[in-house]
Amino acid sequence: MPLPTGPFILGETMTQLIQLITFGIVQGLTYALLASSFWIIYSTTRTFHLAHSLTYAIAGYAVYVVSVQLAMPLWIGLLASLLCSALAGCAIEFLLYDKLRKRGSTVLGIFLSSLGVAAAGTALLQLIFGPMVKQVPGFPNATLSMGEVTVTTLQLTGSAAALVTIAALYVLLTFTSIGNAVTAVRTNPRLSMAVGIRVESVSLLVFAIGSAMAGLAAYFETISFVAYPTMGLQPVMFGVIAVFLGGIGSVKGAALGGFVLGFLLVFSGLFLSQNLGVILVFAVLLVIVVFRPDGLVRSPIGR
């Protein structure tokens, strides 16, 4: 198909550029948050945890139940989101993955059971809450504009929360003893077991942290738009892509991958129609996996 040309590209380039950068930052931070949330789980426990998408949806419904059905304030809804997602993630790790690993399950076995949880859980959500989307109104949202460039307060809040969370994760991993334990397990589980680190506890911890981070993203999506049973699929999928895009060696790599993905999706709009931008993402992913499997950020630790 012919590429769209003409007036769409030759508009006021500066305005478009600044607007695109704004959107890119907003999108990029969201994906960076999701990527980091998947990364901490994946890199530490080597679990291809696609049931993360279920965790995400559970967080979305948690804020709906608390802030709409129980009519509590939105900040309690936020706490509920974080708590429920962390619990959901830990439950999956404790009841399933841990057992599978101890039984010597293959990578494929864990991957498939993860998909099984995601499928069954999403269907259960639909059976419980019905297929209709659930709206959680009430966040005081406004559009701020600087000239023709705009951003909403909701986008600003979500981006700031994502940034702070990623930074907090970085600090936790780099400067605390808990972070050292996590890094030890990530780089060498056997050795860390030998030096007395309880690998099971660390696994639970990273599932709690990663799931709560996904819960945060889900909270903002729900209060911005709606919650529905399959809401986690696309964000988590893109989060996974971002992790491998950026590199699985460090949180910086994962976060950068998310950021790049967001920018890629938004900036492809400079040259391409939106639907072609999505194709570009998968094409870039293919290229990265094939030619630079370490991702954009190579790291001495990791693979």
Binding site: Q19, L20, V26, E148, Q234, L265, V266, S273, Q274, N275
Partner: peptide
Amino acid sequence: EYVNIGTTDFSSLIARLKSA
């Protein structure tokens, strides 16, 4: 401008609309 069915993020399209 074409978008895929199931799109939930329209930011690049919106930026194009603005500049156009």
